[in-house]
Measured scan of single mutants.
Amino acid sequence: TGEEYIAVGDFTAQQVGDLTFKKGEILLVIEKKPDGWWIAKDAKGNEGLVPRTYLEPYS
């Protein structure tokens, strides 16, 4: 389980392990790392690192 967040901007993977997403996408945050990069999963089940500055809590 995780917390749902909504993307407030588009993000394109910079390196292997990053997750590309579009503004408005709902992501499930699995782990919040202290460096500001969180592990998240998208609706298709893809998992990767995302920058927390692009996310806001979804309710």
Rank of each mutant, 00 (worst) to 15 (best):
L55W: 01
W38H: 02
N46S: 08
W38T: 01
T12H: 14
L55T: 01
D42C: 03
E47Y: 13
D42M: 02
T20I: 04
E4M: 13
Q14F: 09
D35S: 08
N46R: 12
P34Y: 12
Y54T: 06
I30A: 03
G48F: 03
K41T: 07
P51S: 08
I26E: 02
I26A: 03
E47S: 10
K22R: 10
G36E: 06
D35V: 03
D18H: 15
V29F: 02
V50K: 00
P34V: 14
E56S: 10
E31Q: 11
I39E: 04
V50L: 03
F21N: 00
D42Y: 01
P57V: 08
W38L: 03
G24R: 03
T1K: 11
K23P: 02
A40Y: 01
G2Q: 10
L49A: 09
D18T: 12
I30Q: 07
G9N: 14
A7T: 10
V29Y: 01
A43R: 11
D18N: 10
Y5G: 01
R52M: 15
I6V: 10
E25S: 09
L28R: 10
K44D: 13
G17S: 08
D42A: 03
K22Y: 10
E25W: 09
V16R: 13
E47Q: 12
V16C: 08
G9C: 11
P57I: 09
V29I: 15
E4S: 13
E47I: 12
V8Y: 04
I26H: 07
I6K: 07
E47L: 15
G48L: 02
E25P: 00
Y5N: 02
I39S: 06
G45H: 05
D35G: 08
E4P: 15
G48D: 00
K22Q: 11
Q15P: 03
I39Q: 08
W38Q: 01
T20F: 04
G2L: 13
G36T: 04
E56Y: 07
A13W: 04
I39L: 13
L19I: 06
P57A: 10
A13R: 07
W37G: 05
G45M: 07
N46I: 09
D10A: 07
K23W: 06
Y5A: 02
E3V: 10
E31Y: 10
Y54R: 08
E56F: 08
G2K: 09
E25I: 03
T1A: 14
K32W: 04
I26Q: 03
W37C: 06
T12D: 14
L28V: 12
F21I: 13
I26L: 09
A13C: 05
R52F: 12
L19V: 03
D10E: 06
D18A: 14
W37T: 08
Y54K: 14
L49S: 12
V8P: 01
I30E: 02
T12I: 12
K44N: 12
E56W: 09
K23V: 08
F11M: 04
L55K: 00
G17T: 09
L27A: 01
Y54L: 15
E3Y: 09
G36M: 06
F11N: 03
Q14G: 10
K23H: 07
K32L: 04
Q14T: 13
E47R: 09
G17K: 05
G36Y: 05
P51Y: 13
G48W: 02
I26K: 08
P57L: 12
N46V: 09
K41L: 14
E56T: 10
L28P: 00
E47M: 11
V16S: 14
P34G: 13
D18Q: 15
K33F: 11
E4Q: 15
E47A: 08
D18G: 14
A43K: 12
G9P: 00
R52Y: 14
D42I: 02
W37R: 10
E3G: 08
A40H: 00
L55G: 00
T20G: 13
V16W: 10
T20K: 05
V8S: 07
L55F: 04
R52P: 15
A7C: 08
L19K: 02
Y5F: 11
A40S: 03
N46Q: 11
K33P: 07
G2A: 12
G36Q: 05
D35Q: 04
F11S: 03
T12S: 14
E25C: 06
A40P: 00
Y58E: 05
G48P: 00
P51G: 05
F11K: 03
K23F: 07
F11V: 05
D35H: 07
G45I: 01
K22H: 13
L19T: 01
K23E: 08
L27E: 00
K33T: 10
K23D: 04
S59N: 11
K44C: 10
G9I: 14
I30S: 06
E47T: 14
Y5E: 00
D35Y: 05
E31H: 10
V16F: 13
V50Q: 00
Y54C: 10
P34C: 10
D42N: 15
T53Q: 12
G36L: 06
A13H: 04
Q15K: 15
V8Q: 07
G48A: 02
Q14H: 10
K41N: 05
D35E: 07
T53Y: 11
